[in-house]
């Protein structure tokens, strides 16, 4: 076999090359399935549409609940997209190849999560101000809404990826995934929605955004290891 002819140390090193290759591969795959990429965004818009219908079309009432609604809906949309994060790789066996690679699995998993955030979290954050207009979100909080969502969804993707990695081997892991992940999302939700509330009240938002950043830093540090351990469990099981 060709592989046996190559000395092993050739495969080692090149961590950046492997991470870049994973990034490019996932980006290419996701961009080929644009419809799947749009689904969370459509879901986000749909859920937001439900609330005025169910509660009241009164703009004053909507303005009060808009920050929370937008955040919860975005969180659910991000959650919905998690199940597919490792699913197709698990099905076609490329996840096993990632596990076999000499590069640390944590780094490769992180690359996959980065692509997930880039193609779901970031679009959700960019779309949220538009839906904010429809919910009569008070002026002056739109930038904060987008920024808090951009920061927050990155943590959500990282934490959620742990749950996705744990449930990828299960046939019907979808509901279980939300059961595992939603309690862990609560701190991000508190500070994300809190940032928008603070912007509306005219208070400083830097404290909220700083904590969102801190949560992201902590998840960046710890989540990749948990993701790697969980992937190993799911593959060996």
């Amino acid at each position: 076999m060709r592989a046996s002819l190559m000395p092993l140390h050739d495969h080692k090193g090149g961590l950046m090359i492997a991470v870049k290759a994973t990034l490019m591969r996932d980006l290419t795959l996701m961009l080929r399935r644009r419809g799947e990429m749009l689904n969370p965004l459509v879901f986000f818009a749909l859920v937001i549409t439900l609330f005025p219908i169910a509660i009241s079309p009164d703009p004053e009432l909507l303005a009060v609940i808009a920050p929370g609604l937008l955040w919860v809906a975005a969180l659910l949309a991000a959650l919905l997209s998690l199940d597919s994060l490792f699913r197709s790789d698990y099905d076609d066996g490329s996840l096993e190849q990632l596990l076999l690679a000499p590069q640390p699995l944590a780094a490769l998993g992180l690359a996959k999560v980065a692509v997930h955030w880039l193609l779901t979290g970031l679009p959700l954050a960019l779309m949220a101000p538009l839906l904010g207009i429809m919910l009569a979100l008070p002026a002056g909080s739109y930038a904060v809404l987008a920024l808090s969502l951009a920061l927050g969804t990155a943590s959500l993707s990282l934490i959620g990826a742990i749950g996705a990695a744990l449930t990828v081997g299960l046939a019907r892991g979808g509901v279980l995934l939300s059961l595992l992940v939603l309690p862990l999302y609560i701190p991000v939700l508190i500070f994300g929605a809190g940032a928008v509330q603070a912007a509306i009240m005219g208070d400083g938002v830097s404290a909220h955004l700083a904590i969102l950043g801190a949560l992201l830093a902590a998840s960046l540090m710890l989540a990749p290891w948990a993701i790697a351990a969980s992937l190993r469990i799911s593959i060996n099981g």
């Binding site: 744990l166 710890l222 351990a229 060996n236 099981g237």
Partner: peptide
């Protein structure tokens, strides 16, 4: 074996999060 290891990982992730959840609440 998978069940045990998965539950262990989740319990550890949860225990790291409990103080964070506590303070944010």
């Amino acid at each position: 074996d998978s069940a045990s290891r998965a539950a262990s990982v989740l319990a550890m992730v949860g225990v790291i999060n409990i103080p964070i959840i506590k303070y944010s609440v």
